[in-house]
């Protein structure tokens, strides 16, 4: 079996990719997907550590995260759809209504 560090390093790489996606991409859908990536990176480290420590707690949390991610996807996509209908764009650079 691969050592725990391999899983954690992979999880870190995936999370970093997700963060970069959120910070650097302009398309809201892509940002959204990057968030999903971050969540799943965390999920990976949860299951890996659960296995390593012989505890079920981590696996249980993953189920919760997946449920929340599903709900979030539904709400988030609905918001993006409405924003597009109103503003004709989903580019994060152009959505600057909430400022001074």
């Amino acid at each position: 079996m691969a050592p725990i560090s391999y899983h954690l390093i992979l999880s870190g790489i995936l999370f970093t990719i997700g963060v970069m996606g959120v910070l650097l991409r302009r398309n809201t859908i892509i940002i959204f997907m990057a968030i999903e990536l971050m969540l799943n990176a965390v999920n990976l480290s949860f299951v890996a550590l659960a296995r390593h420590l012989g505890s079920m707690d981590g696996q249980l949390i993953v189920l919760f995260v997946m449920a929340v991610a599903a709900a979030e996807a539904a709400v988030g996509l609905a918001i993006i759809l409405m924003v597009f209908r109103n503003k004709e764009t989903i580019n994060a650079d152009e959505l600057k209504l909430m400022r001074w």
Partner: peptide
């Protein structure tokens, strides 16, 4: 200070980070 509040969500996310 209010110049920081530029409405760009990604800027805020960077601050979070």
């Amino acid at each position: 200070l209010r110049l920081w509040q530029n409405g760009n969500v990604q800027n805020y996310a960077l601050s979070f980070l």
